[in-house]
Design a protein around this nucleic acid. Structure first.
Lengths: 340, 340
DNA sequence: AACGTTTCCGTAAACGTTTACAAACCCGAA
DNA sequence: TTCGGGTTTGTAAACGTTTACGGAAACGTT
């Protein structure tokens, strides 16, 4: 049961016996005589007055809100990114509005027109797929947008992305060092931005090291989920016998580990596994999974900072930043020495 | 580089040669002559006009936003709840604003005064801790609030909570059925709402079944995280030798499993493990973990619906709903038959 | 005592909508 | 032709702020 009727500047002004301008000034800490300050403070306290955010926004032309749209809320890597973005923008005095876009690309252009209604001051967008027409839409936006992930060619927008090629290369190098040579690959859908990039990374890493590329050693799951990973893993192990697998995702990696152990393979002895994104689940798995950190948290933080920067200086030059990957080695890929 | 200058009702009206009222009417689908509709549509299209959300909010007194505050964004169970709430409110035409409150209880009252600024139309709050003074603050709010979890006594607010006692009872019954008798308990902090409730459930479940309560068989982690769970698990296994453990959380459960297997205990043969919340990690673990679903998703959905209902009917009677728990049995707790 | 400066405060306009009200119009009936 | 009723349209007020502007008051200076 809400009880306190909403109180406005006018009410406070009447009660304090001053003009609304004075009330506004006192509330915003602008210069005023001690006497007025005192009277306004008292009246405001008695009425429990708090300034209205909407009215202020209308006048100021800023909502103090930032919109965040991520494609797949279920994936832990996005949760981590969201968390980080939330931290950064909150500290800067902004609220975070969650705009979940489904996989339907129409959602994204809906989001953009909706953004033009001005419910937020800017947008951070991390799309799974980037259809051609999105480019124009993005550039036509009245409000600043920062993209996490690759852009359509030619689009000039603030942008932060991962270096998937370097990332997969880290994984492959590590596995080769550990004495593995039949390195397979479990990917997500190749028509997504990360799927395409990671496949590209796998192919170039193997060819760069003179390892044979075998079609049977590559599968791609229907999406980046655990469940799809189970099926993909089964398919992979049916059609080849690798001694190591790179997975484009930690979820796919634990799915593979489950399937592999169910088939009697020991990890890492019979099969080394490397995941990607370095989320908590990689660390929590048993055995813990080696994972390539594609810098998701750093990307998130960087994207948030880029947006904040552009909000305070719309003329700032466009930045396109690439975050370098790192490898966290855990038990799932380390070949045990036999003596001891 | 934003390019299209913002266009307003006035601009559209001028271009179409009609009054702003007519433009507004056409945009909102109110009756107008075909001729006016045509002219306005054309002008609006040419200018790329989209109505301003802030101005509309000011006039209407509604922001079409719902605020969500959860204590611990890292915990997967909250992620699932957030996801569900997002779905429900989005479908109803609301945007979701994330207001992360830290563990500091001051954050919560800050949030409440901030809510009174009217940046959202209502709030869904899932607090970890509920200090005394919060009750009054909650009741004094001008805007509707739905609480997920227990309330301070005497506070009359829409509320959805889990039945922890029944939940732990499900777990204990199941373990007893499987022939276990030394059932230990890994809890989170007991000064939190879920921590207190689940401890209560454990104690009453064991006494109800005539099982001995042993202080050595109970530990509580510093918080509900995996890392704290590792320490708590080690402590537990140092001080007693249970044949089954109930964990108040899936994260604590996988931490326990890791520690147990590292000590050479086989799950479930030597140690049965039951988690709580039934999150993805329980299913993804190897072996998969039996878990009590305290209805987190249902609670989230119900809370969202309660809030929507109250928004459209502020006079509706206060609802306090308890969601019944269910048990999902998986490999971690099923005693294998020896023959076969 | 008259003047310029500075400080303080109130009036009113503006932000971009929605909507109550009234004016204007159209139509058919008397 | 005049009138009444209904439809369509425009004018203006309102939502709750912030802020440019000008007037009033206070003060020190010649």
């Amino acid at each position: 049961m809400p009880q306190t009727k909403k109180s406005t500047l006018v009410l406070v002004a009447e009660r304090a016996g001053v003009s609304i301008a004075s009330v506004s000034r006192v509330m915003n800490g602008l210069p005023a005589s001690d006497q007025i300050i005192e009277r306004v403070r008292k009246a405001a306290d008695e009425l429990g007055y708090v300034p209205d955010a909407t009215a202020r926004s209308l006048k100021a032309g800023r909502t103090e809100q930032i919109a965040l749209a991520v494609a797949d809320v279920g994936n832990p890597v996005y949760v981590g990114m969201m968390h980080e973005i939330s931290r950064v923008v909150t500290k800067a005095g902004y609220r975070l509005v969650l705009s979940s876009t489904g996989s339907d690309p129409r959602d994204q252009i809906d989001l953009l027109t909706s953004l033009n209604r001005g419910f937020a001051d800017g947008l951070i967008l991390s799309p799974l797929r980037v259809p051609e027409e999105l480019g124009a839409q993005l550039e036509a936006s009245r409000l600043p947008i920062v993209i996490i992930g690759s852009l359509p060619p030619g689009v000039e927008l603030d942008n932060v992305r991962a270096d998937s090629v370097a990332g997969v290369a880290l994984a492959v190098d590590h596995l080769v060092e550990q004495g593995r040579s039949r390195i397979a690959f479990v990917n997500g859908p190749v028509d997504t931005v990360p799927g395409a990039a990671r496949l590209n990374g796998y192919v170039s890493a193997l060819t760069a090291r003179g390892l044979p590329l075998n079609q049977d050693a590559q599968v791609s799951a229907k999406d980046f989920t655990y469940k799809a990973g189970l099926k993909a893993a089964a398919r992979l192990l049916d059609q080849c016998t690798p001694d190591a697998v790179v997975c484009s995702n930690d979820l796919l990696a634990i799915a593979l580990m489950k399937v592999a152990t169910a088939r009697g393979l020991r990890v890492p002895d019979d099969l080394a596994i490397v995941g990607m994104d370095d989320t908590d689940i990689a660390d929590h798995a048993n055995p813990a999974i080696t994972s390539v950190d594609l810098g998701s948290v750093t990307r998130a933080k960087t994207a948030a900072k880029l947006l904040l920067r552009r909000l305070e200086d719309p003329q700032a030059p466009v930045e396109q930043i690439v975050i370098e990957p790192t490898l966290t080695v855990r038990a799932s890929s380390v070949t045990r020495t036999t003596e001891g």
